[in-house]
């Protein structure tokens, strides 16, 4: 993994999560802002997927299990899609909160992915 990219990814996911949470709790339905923030998180995750594929080939190998890393990454990539589709189907404030939950979960998962990649002792 690339450290600065991971930091950006966690920061954006957390910020998008807080943004969607605030919007949702104020009763705002999913819109360009909340969906756009979630889309940005998704794009960063797809970038992460690219990095994860290329990194081992150029000598940046994970210290932990690559399989476990990919389980996290694939689930993380699916989350914004599921939350986003749900937000399109049911357009009320709670869908905005669902987007928030997905983004916040991704922030935690990327931290965990970083631990798997960099500081496993196994």
């Amino acid at each position: 993994m690339i450290e600065w990219y991971t930091v950006v990814e966690v920061a954006v996911a957390a910020a998008a999560g807080v943004l969607c949470l605030v919007l949702g709790l104020f009763g705002v339905r999913p819109g360009d802002l909340s969906m756009g923030a979630t889309l940005l998180v998704e794009l960063l995750l797809l970038g992460q997927l690219g990095i994860a594929i290329v990194a081992p080939l150029v000598g940046n190998s994970p210290t932990g299990s690559l399989l476990e890393f990919y389980i996290y990454l694939v689930v993380a990539i699916l989350l914004p899609l599921l939350a986003g589709v749900w937000a399109l189907v049911e357009r009320d404030r709670w869908s905005t909160v669902v987007l928030a939950v997905a983004c916040l979960a991704i922030a935690v998962m990327v931290v965990r992915m970083n631990i798997i990649w960099t500081v496993q002792i196994a």
Binding site: L82, A83, E90, D92, W94, S95, V98, A102
Partner: peptide
């Protein structure tokens, strides 16, 4: 469908 309301937030956390 909308009757699930806030429960959808609970559901997504359970799903994750």
């Amino acid at each position: 469908r909308r009757s699930l309301g806030a429960g959808r937030v609970l559901i997504i956390v359970y799903a994750i």
